[in-house]
Amino acid sequence: MYIAFILCNFKQQFQYRASLYMRLVGNMIRIYIQVCIWQSLIQKEVPTDQTLIDLVSYTVIAFLIERLTHNETADTLAQKVKEGSIAIELIRPFSLKWYLFYQQLSENTFSFLFIGLPVALISAIFWHIRIAGVIELGLGFLSIVFAIFLSFNFQYAIGLLVFWVKDATYTRLITGGIVALFSGSLIPLWFYPETFKKICNFLPFRYMMFEPISIFLGQYTIKSCLDVLVIQLFWIVLLSLLAQFIWKNVQKSITIQGG
């Protein structure tokens, strides 16, 4: 299933090569801006525990994770609801959730391989990037896999709201805003004000971005790494139950447009 999606998607994407180059350039710019900001901030007299290398590495890993957790489920759903083709999806012998998951994953694999990795490589040439060790690398990868599931379950649960809101632009803005703010994708949680940091502890979002990166950077002992993985699992279960609950309600109240 996944393989089929991937092949189909790659073919589609390669059709628009110009668009791909633009995305490469655009993302390179984003990383460059962020590095400039760190360079400008870190030279200041305010002391930090993190070095410029840490921050640049953080930025690049965050960018890679973003490629993998990027999510347009809400848009896909909204499109289908508007056109009425959602009716067909509902009678397919395959759960809608996993259909959406594989579709998203295949898109993300593409953007990870052809945008994420090249940009990361170029960044590694320009700036110094450091990752802790082999064990951290392994645990970090596992943690990213969990982060993918975690983020998907959250986005999917919110995405289901388009059955009522009918327009994905807004659910996207809301989830985008919340994730950007609480996950640490814009700014590492190290620099957050204390109260805000505490709030983040009780939310699932830091486990989508900040924690996996911290593992890669070697900020944690092996034991705390394992703790992170367990908490990630806990949130995955909780959010998929939430998604399940919303989905039940959708099925009850769904109205199909046109035929």
């Binding site: 327009d167 985008g176 805003g177 919340i178 700014i187 957050y192 805000f196």
Partner: peptide, 19 residues
């Protein structure tokens, strides 16, 4: 929509404030 836009756009301001 208004709510979502407020959330979406204030993240930019908030991140500046935090940094």
């Amino acid at each position: 929509r208004m709510l979502s836009k407020v959330i979406g756009w204030s993240t930019g301001f908030i991140s500046i404030l935090f940094l």
